[in-house]
């Protein structure tokens, strides 16, 4: 369970160009379910995901993970959480150019100090499970959009995190690839993972695997979220 209490996030606080991206968010996100944040551009979806995933600190308010407040933790512990508890799929994938698929997927596990062969085997498992086996040694910039996204998913899952976060995951994909992605989400949910996504794509909100849709506008939760029954 992830809980946000009175969370605000202001960029460039105290300056003339200050922007309030999150404005008093109160939200609880259930575990082992798929939650989608929907709303137009600039509504605060990405900022909310960043705050939840410990990639940005809220300006005020607090974020708790399984009852433990994580928003005020020192950087070292937040890094640990990002590494162990969260897998993040960025809108533009944010893969490191010049590295191969395998090297990119191994990145989150590199600082763990595990034997190289073990890391490599684990990364290859993820890559093959997502059908990218033949492209493992291909450089990222030579991948198609769908392949890059699968590489990003493999990277997000390398440390087997219980929470998978995806920011506008279908924004750069065509219909078929979007369907494939949602299928992967359904499989991950079935494995017991919590999935949180932001999207303004109706195909995502309406997907069978989605348990809950939260509407956002101008940095606020727009309406009382409708709780759907988690699917078995």
């Amino acid at each position: 369970m992830i809980t946000l209490q009175s969370v605000t996030k202001t960029y460039n606080a105290g300056r003339p160009n200050a922007v309030t991206a999150l404005d008093g968010i109160d939200l609880s996100i259930e575990g082992r379910a798929v939650t989608v944040l929907k709303g137009p551009s600039g509504s605060g979806k990405s900022s909310l995901l960043s705050v939840v995933a410990c990639m940005a600190r809220p300006s005020t308010g607090r974020v708790s993970l399984d009852g433990e407040v994580v928003s005020g933790l020192p950087e070292h512990f937040q890094t640990e959480l990002r590494r162990v508890r969260f897998g993040f799929i960025f809108q533009r994938f944010n893969l490191v150019r010049g590295l191969t698929v395998l090297e990119n997927v191994m990145l989150p596990a590199a600082p763990l100090g595990k034997p190289f062969a073990e890391l490599r085997a684990r990364a290859m498992d993820r890559i093959e499970a997502l059908g990218l086996g033949p492209r493992a040694q291909t450089r990222i910039e030579r991948l198609s959009g769908g392949e890059a996204q699968r590489a990003a998913i493999a990277r997000a899952l390398i440390n087997d995190p219980p929470i998978l976060i995806a920011d506008e995951p279908t924004a750069n994909l065509d219909s078929a690839l979007s369907e494939t992605f949602l299928q992967i989400v359904a499989e991950e949910k079935a494995r017991g993972r919590t999935v949180i996504m932001s999207s303004h794509d109706p195909r995502v909100w309406g997907a069978d695997c989605v348990d809950r849709v939260v509407s956002m506008r101008d940095g606020r939760i727009e309406d009382a979220p409708v709780q759907q029954e988690p699917q078995p």
């Binding site: 990639m55 070292h76 890094t79 990002r82 960025f90 944010n94 490191v96 990277r155």
Partner: peptide
């Protein structure tokens, strides 16, 4: 921008400042 972005990615995927 590319180098800063790369550092951001590394941090986001779980590298700490020390790494």
């Amino acid at each position: 921008a590319e180098e800063a972005r790369e550092i951001g990615i590394l941090k986001a995927v779980g590298w700490n400042t020390r790494d």
